[in-house]
Design a protein around this nucleic acid. Sequence first.
DNA 1: TCCCAGGACAGCA
DNA 2: TGCTGTCATGGG
Length: 279
Amino acid sequence: MDILKEKQKIVINNPDSFKIKDILECGQVFRYNIFSDYADVVTKDHYAQIVDYGKKIIINCDDSEYFYDYFDLDTDYQAIKQQIKVNPYMSSAIEFGQGIRILKADLFEMIISFIISANNNIGRIKKTLDFISKHLGKDMGGYNAFPEIDVLAQADEKFFLSAGCGYRSPYLVHTLNILKNSHLLFFEQLKNSGTVQAFEKLMTLKGVGEKVADCVLLFGLHRTDVFPVDTWIFKVYKDNFNGELTSRKNIREFFINLFGNLSGYAQQYLFYFKRSSKA
DNA sequence: TCCCAGGACAGCA
DNA sequence: TGCTGTCATGGG
């Protein structure tokens, strides 16, 4: 595909691995809307509107450099698909989610979003994050930014309960208290660590277990050598890979052995296919 | 009414 | 280390 970049506009001609519905609905980010004639997405304090004309996609946004990176437009997804097409089921999953791209989302936003995601469903996660942003995020004129750490750290458990965070509320308060004073160093260390070390470091935060840590690594740090195992991946493993493993840890290891550094990509195709088609 | 959702955590063996 | 019950909440 051919990409043109202006100051506040990106034009993609003949897109081969870019479908905004696939990108937004595969469960990696939650602050978006899909309408009949366009879609929009808010990330951190940025906004983009995406129109799909078939052979041409136009992204109108506040900063095209930011969204060029956000949509991972330098990566060749056709090549990745060829490498992870290890069996007929993978081929079907890739065909189904052919427009998926792994977004480069904001690290802090991903930590909070995926703590809220635990034992939750995407509809409720979207509502909760919209509530939080609407109440504590900066008014950007037409939309609200995701709240800054300092602002969100001032919110109490009662606020998160009213936002619909449920039993995850004390986890959020605890984690925000840790991050409000240490986030610069904490995030720097995450970025400079190997994946295993970053995985362990993330799990020191309340509300962050193996699966949430993997999602933060994949979507917030673009580490593609991880494989988040959630309830849908358990089903994929059982139904479509005929596996006998039962623990999250072992299933994660099984898939990472299979897909290596492309595990994160493979996981997204599988998750999206299973959740959408139930095949 | 029961089951489920991008699970984490404490308690226990 | 690995297993089990519990947690808040809305939708199907």
